[in-house]
Design a protein around this nucleic acid. Structure first.
Length: 568
RNA sequence: UGCCGGAUAGCUCAAUUGGCAGAGCGGCUGACUCUGGAUCAGCAGGUUCUAGGUUCGAGCCCUAGUCCGGCAGCCA
């Protein structure tokens, strides 16, 4: 392995700052503590993954790739009360979608239960674990507090034989739920509360999604996790910062057992502005009806981001940009938007759709004539080639692209003014037609037949270029415009007795009926487009050929909107 | 309150053995143009949490303090 190859640049040769985890791994390699790198992503199958998990995946998988090592996907399925196959399937889909490759190493902690049981017996034989009859409440009350030591359990000094017998009976199902536990015999006075004789096994008579009724005792996280890493030969067990205090326990079990010991390293969790990032908050939002489900495009779940149209590449780029630190961080959601634009700009075919239509009639264009105009599919990607768009006498343009009384620096259409219709002709607005209420309902324009393709032979400059759609082919479509879920950067920034839902953005989704060209109407779910001058959109799963539905992934950067906001 | 961790530009992160504090995002200017997008160029922005100390020299090492986060599930 040649880690130097990976030190200063990524796959595309861009410079990459090293981070403290990579530094630590290099030290381990140099010192000989490890001679290879093997990481794992260990989700519990009890919830949907979010972008914070994506960060963890990219740390784990990215590091394995950088050091020519291996990466496992392992379900930490040690609690039958919370876990379901449904989540296993969803997590697999999400991690695969992200692009992390675990090859043939998909593992389940529950497959190690027998080995864990044997090791627990070893610890009992060493006098390092005992069966405790205390209730959960008694365990709590004897644990002590942050400032006072705990008291030893009255069962702490049982004989090895008795412990072995009792533990076997726990496994055999002789005792009811929660009546006994197996505890590690460490130190009830430790300043680290986790070391005060932590529970290793609890009795739960519940079927496990993979093990069925094979077990009625289940290992706790602290006991199980290091064993799982050890069994799989993981070298670096990377986890989020709240596990830091668990590390002494992770090490203690492995050292007492005398088995292979990986190194746990913790990194800070990801938070983002204008959103929430916890399972509990997602549940509140879904159950409160504030969002439509766990795949609502406003949620930072991977399912939601995917439905919104965000690409795995954009997420990977994001994870690279935010870096890795020891402390928790709050990343500006604009950084994600930027990554999304960056990727979609390179890869999305362009098309013209009209969100809020205004009719244009070209009075000098022959009644029955139509033309196929050639349009570049993606100026950033010449290989994408071109397509044609139907041009005709009656067209739709965007309402915003016309002002009867244009402010200074407004270059788009206005009475008497010329603009270019993209890839078509230069047109001039001659007449404004209004309804009874005075709303502009139609523009009468003339086109310059000499300007086919968009340039005039006399070389005159036209400042604005508008997108358009021929009325004859435009299809009505539901278009959902998504914005930030919360108005405030920090959703928890609330009044005294307020709650985070007070900060929900009432306009986080605006659903409108717009018009799209035929190829968009026919596109399958998941197809992404750039609607020129508007933003990036993705065909939603509710889309039908009869009535298409698209979600706005992110807007284009809009300098005009910024300008207008500044000088009202 | 005990233990652990963190604090560097508005935000997120860098800064080899102690050696001129940098980048990305955001903000602002400008150039360009058949997307007012993209792209490109430039500018502003810092008492490196505070107070001491060691040192020729401290973001980095030492001492004391401040603030923030994590931990008292038979969750992970």
């Amino acid at each position: 392995m040649e880690d130097r190859d990976h030190r200063d640049s990524d796959v595309e040769g861009r410079p990459r700052a090293s981070d403290f985890i990579r530094d630590a791994i290099r030290e381990d390699l140099a010192s000989g503590r490890f001679d290879r790198v093997h990481t794992r992503f260990p989700p519990e199958p009890n919830a949907y993954l979010h972008i914070g998990h994506a960060k963890a995946v990219w740390i784990d998988y990215g590091i394995a790739c950088d050091f020519g090592g291996k990466f496992n996907l392992r379900f930490d399925d040690t609690n039958p009360l919370k876990e379901e196959q449904e989540f296993v399937d969803a997590v697999i889909e999400d991690v695969r979608w992200l692009g992390a490759d675990w090859e043939d190493r998909l593992f389940y902690a529950s497959d190690y239960f027998e080995q864990m049981y044997q090791w627990a017996c070893d610890l009992i034989r060493k006098g390092k674990a005992y069966v405790c009859d205390l209730s959960a409440e008694d365990v709590r009350s004897t644990r002590g507090t942050l400032t006072e030591p705990g008291r030893n359990s009255p069962f702490r000094n049982r004989s090895v034989e008795e412990n072995l017998d009792l533990f076997a009976r726990m496994r055999a199902g002789e005792y009811p739920d929660a009546s006994r536990t197996l505890r590690a015999r460490i130190d009830m006075a430790s300043p680290n509360l986790l070391l005060r004789d932590p529970v290793m096994y609890r009795i739960i008579h519940a079927p496990h999604h993979r093990q069925g009724d094979a077990w009625c005792i289940y290992p706790t996280y602290d006991w199980a996790h290091g064993l799982e890493d050890s069994i799989e030969g993981v070298t670096h067990s990377l986890c989020s910062q709240e596990y830091e205090i668990h590390r002494p326990l992770y090490d203690w079990f492995l050292i007492e057992l005398g088995i292979y010991r990986p190194r746990q390293i913790e990194f800070g969790r990801l938070n983002m502005t204008h959103t929430v990032m916890s399972k509990r908050r997602f549940i509140e939002l879904v159950e409160g009806g504030y969002v439509s489900g766990y795949d609502d495009p406003r949620l930072p779940t991977l399912a939601g981001l995917r439905r919104r149209g965000v690409t795995p590449d954009a997420i990977r780029e994001f994870c690279g940009r935010i870096g890795i630190a020891k402390g928790n961080s709050v990343v500006d959601s604009a950084v994600l938007d930027d990554c999304v634009r960056d990727d979609l700009n390179r890869t999305s075919p362009r098309t013209m759709a009209v969100l809020r239509p205004l009719k244009v009639v070209l009075t000098n264009y022959p009644e029955n004539q139509t033309e196929e105009m050639e349009v570049v599919i993606n100026p950033e990607d010449p290989a994408a080639g071109s397509r044609t768009a139907l041009f005709a006498r009656e067209l739709w343009i965007e309402q915003e692209d016309f002002r009867e009384d244009p402010p200074p620096n407004y270059f788009r259409m206005a009475p008497g003014r010329e603009v270019r219709l993209r890839a078509a002709y230069i047109v001039r607005c001659n007449e404004v037609i209004k309804d009874a209420e005075g709303n502009v309902v139609e523009l009468r324009c003339t086109y310059d037949p000499e300007s086919r393709g968009g340039t005039a032979p006399d070389g005159r400059k036209v400042k604005a270029t508008l997108h358009w759609l021929a009325a004859a082919v435009a299809k009505a479509a539901t278009i959902r415009l998504y914005g930030p879920l919360f108005v405030t950067a920090d959703p928890d920034d609330v009044a005294e007795d307020g709650t985070f839902t007070d900060n929900l953005n009432p306009d986080s989704m605006v659903e409108i009926e717009g018009l799209v060209p035929p190829e968009v109407a026919a596109a399958p779910c998941g197809t992404r487009y750039q609607f020129e001058r508007i933003g990036y959109f993705c065909v939603d799963r509710d889309s039908t050929p009869e009535h298409p539905a698209l979600n706005r992934t992110v807007t284009l950067r809009d300098t005009w909107a910024k300008l207008e906001k500044r000088e009202p």
